[in-house]
């Protein structure tokens, strides 16, 4: 299986990564290598094997429904580039 440069561009856009033409080509070769590996794995007959979502055979732990966090807005926002009226400011987004 070989990816096209357009497909690489699409994946890059989804990941919000800007690639130059040279980077696109290099990324395509790397991705091709990964897909080669996947193809190899897909050749294994997995009939009757339950799909695995996590490598460990454990169940997730649960916490009780209780509020234990306190307001740490000032500390968190000290690291933010821009805030106002308690809000984080970001470049304008309207869908």
């Amino acid at each position: 299986m070989s990816l096209s440069n357009e497909q690489v561009g699409h994946v890059a856009r989804l990941a919000r990564i800007a690639l130059t033409e040279a980077e696109t080509e290099a990324t395509r070769r790397k991705l091709d290598g990964i897909f080669g590996l996947i193809e190899q794995m897909q050749a294994v007959d997995t009939t009757g094997v339950e799909p695995m979502s996590h490598p460990q055979e454990l169940a997730t732990r649960l916490r009780e429904d209780a509020v234990i966090e306190t307001d740490r807005r000032a500390a968190f926002q000290a690291a933010a580039p821009q805030t106002e009226a308690g809000l984080y400011l970001v470049p304008k987004v309207i869908e």
């Binding site: 106002e84 809000l87 400011l89 309207i94």
Partner: peptide, 8 residues
């Protein structure tokens, strides 16, 4: 907000 969006 000066041409920016606020996030809560």
């Amino acid at each position: 907000f000066h041409g920016m969006s606020g996030i809560d």
